[in-house]
Write a protein that binds this DNA or RNA. Structure first.
Lengths: 210, 210
DNA sequence: AACAAAATTAAACAAACGTTTAATTTAAAC
DNA sequence: GTTTAAATTAAACGTTTGTTTAATTTTGTT
């Protein structure tokens, strides 16, 4: 909807990184202003307050997530399992492509007192579930997937695994083959590793004979 | 090692809850002092500083986790899959039994700059992996489990799923049968649901024919 | 009872916080 | 070129922050 100037975007970008690295309360508006190379007052001037700044980051990313979800709905020709595979890969790419924001989400979803940000998070998660649920259900009714699968928990595993991968990358990195050197190589290595793992996991539980 | 007085324990308990609910920087020592019904100065007097207080909480819980790991090592008579099942259940009980602390861990592991607390977290995670790795590897060599399983990622899924369940409980609650009313009922319901899900998941990926 | 050590308190500390003010510069419109 | 609005600044605002001080109370020991 709204558009942001370069200066506003640079504030949003810096704030997102710092909130991710140090937490919302661990980051001061002076930190943000300094790293974004703007006057402190500009943050209130543009966004109203520090809280509103966080909210802006969320609305900004969430809008993109909505688009993302709608795009996923258009994969209607694939078979159920391939749909799931496609969904997994897109989720991984999306979430690992905006790791700073995902860090903020990981943090904010833990806050006990409700807030606009908290509501946005669970709203989005609901929509994600609403995306996956019918794919699985349809395949279950068609006899392709098993009946006794807890889709809500499967979604939890999907989110949880990726969210756990983000801070664990420096550990997972150690198992990478020696030819993985550059940051790009490394990003591709992680994506592939998570993708392979999750696809196996989902295929196994959705189609395995018990 | 050290023992703590009732007053100290009450501070630790309150601080753990508040850190979990509002984050470390989102909680003031005045908040803690007030809820624990002690003078503000007592926190510095007992623990040195707010940072040291957090570190104390971590050392306190980690010591228990070490014991927990060592107990797990004694299940040597079970078959591989049952070992895994036992491990899953114990992890769930342990982690859902100290949800406040797990919230703090979820948050702290995201911090980019290293700290004593951060080191402790990854140290413990390494030990957890060292616990699971040989169980799977032995079973793989015995031909009971599949070869192509990424144990490190499996551990990531285990942690990630449970860590994701903690803040998602108010959502997962909605699917509970009507006879689940009390907090205890509800705790048991969640534990069982997560347990069932993770066991299916692990069994499927470890023993499924691809 | 007298003393020493530990525990507890209210008050004060400087530093950092988010936000606002009022003055100034830049840009746009006429 | 003048006028008006928007953007930008440095400085100050009043709180709140974590921590310390110094005085007092409690506790334990002889």
């Amino acid at each position: 909807m709204e558009e942001y100037s370069e200066k506003q975007l640079s504030i949003l970008k810096v704030a997102e990184r710092l909130f991710a690295d140090q937490g919302f309360h661990g980051t001061s508006v002076r930190d943000i202003a300094q790293e974004a190379d703007v006057n402190i007052a500009m943050i209130s001037y543009y966004f109203g307050s520090k809280d509103k700044l966080l909210e802006t980051i969320f609305r900004f990313r969430m809008e993109a997530s909505r688009k993302f979800i709608n795009e996923l709905l258009e994969n209607d020709t694939l078979e159920p399992l391939d749909k799931i595979y496609s969904l997994i890969d897109r989720f991984i790419n999306k979430m690992l492509g905006e790791q700073y924001f995902q860090c903020i989400m990981s943090r904010e979803q833990l806050n006990s007192q409700q807030s606009p940000v908290r509501d946005l998070i669970w709203q989005l998660k609901g929509e994600m579930l609403g995306l996956m649920q019918p794919i699985v259900t349809n395949a279950q009714e068609a006899g392709i997937f098993h009946k006794d699968v807890d889709v809500e928990m499967l979604m939890t595993t999907l989110f949880g695994t990726i969210h756990q991968v983000i801070p664990a990358q420096h550990i997972l990195k150690k198992s990478a083959p020696p030819e993985v050197i550059s940051d790009e190589d490394y990003g591709a290595y992680i994506r592939n590793r998570v993708s392979t793992h999750l696809k196996k996991l989902f295929k196994a539980i959705l189609t395995h004979e018990f």
